[in-house]
């Protein structure tokens, strides 16, 4: 197990280094942040001073060397925009995104597993047909459109929920509801397909011959086996949420890492962009590890 984690870590580290190099140099192509931060009437002297403070005058390779040198000491640099350590800014936003992703995926998983399993139990039945249509619509729905419609209906029209921002429990409902839709549709379909094949498996026949109750056949015998392919999809969907649901966070003014990244790119706040990427990459690495552990926990055949 430890060797497995070590191997994984090395592979992930290599891709992380590649990612940092790529983002560092590409982001500099967007131009010099000086113009964005100083007033139009700033003197050349002030501009030179600004560049000097942030080391923007040095050749790129020197800037990169300095960045990496600081990074190994866990110094992610200063945010130009916020005038605070970049990592503090990023972690603050990441905690918001993490909460949003965890709550959404937990709800998605429970709902999709129950609906998908019941649909698979009577293939072609009424419940299966309804859930088939619902999941198809959900999986293909454009979430930015749903977000805007939801704001118009529930926030502006009915006035039940706030339009954007954070503060109360009510602020969470719309973002979670909108983010829920697509992964739910997708995972219902995967659960259903996987359950159909496990329910027709030989060991389910054995369980029926043993006189095991139907509920236990579905949720004990079949579900655990059916979850194996589902876990991969859950991980995939969770990863895209951890990366920051850029569009949804922007529409709902949710202070997560996705919104932060977009703002930082637009403002050429390079240190924050890089720190966001490193933090989300680490989060996705940890999550993939958890997925692998979940696999091993569910299936004894791959433990060794």
């Amino acid at each position: 197990m430890l060797t497995f984690i070590r191997k994984r870590s090395v592979a992930s580290l290599v891709s992380l280094v590649g990612l940092i190099v790529l983002v560092f140099f590409l982001s500099r192509l967007t131009g010099d942040p000086t113009d964005l931060y100083l007033p139009i009437d700033a003197t050349d002297e002030m501009r030179a001073q600004f560049r000097d403070i942030y080391g923007l005058d040095d050749p790129l390779i020197v800037q990169f060397g300095r960045y990496v040198g600081d990074l190994v000491q866990l110094d992610f640099g200063e945010s130009i925009r916020k005038a605070r350590p970049a990592i503090d800014v990023v972690l603050e936003a990441f905690v918001w995104t993490l909460q949003l992703a965890l709550i959404t995926m937990a709800l998605v998983t429970v709902a999709a597993v129950v609906v998908g399993s019941l649909a698979a139990f009577r293939v072609g039945g009424f419940f299966d047909r309804v859930s088939g249509i619902v999941s198809l619509v959900a999986a293909s729905a454009p979430d930015f459109w749903i977000a805007i419609v939801a704001i118009v209906v529930f926030a502006v029209g009915l006035g039940w929920l706030p339009t954007s921002g954070t503060g109360t429990v009510w602020h969470w409902i719309l973002p979670i509801a909108v983010l829920f839709i697509r992964p739910f549709g997708l995972i219902v379909q995967v659960v259903r397909g996987s359950m159909i094949s496990t329910l027709s498996s030989a060991y389910v026949k054995t369980a029926r011959a043993k006189g095991v109750r139907t509920r236990s056949i579905i949720f004990v015998h079949a579900l655990r086996n059916a979850m194996l392919p589902v876990i991969t999809v859950i991980g995939d969907q969770a990863a895209s949420l951890l990366n920051g649901a850029v569009v949804i966070e922007t529409i709902f003014g949710f202070p997560g890492v996705g919104k932060l990244m977009i703002d930082s790119i637009l403002q050429r706040d390079f240190t924050v962009v890089l720190a966001s990427i490193i933090v989300t990459a680490l989060a996705i690495f940890v999550m993939n590890l958890l997925i692998d552990l979940a696999y091993a926990a569910l299936d004894p055949r791959i433990r060794n």
Binding site: A202, K205, L298, P300, R301
Partner: peptide, 13 residues
């Protein structure tokens, strides 16, 4: 009842 191919008739997990 017992079946042919006990590997697939026993629940693997």
């Amino acid at each position: 009842m017992i079946f042919q191919d006990p590997l697939s008739h026993l629940n693997p997990v």
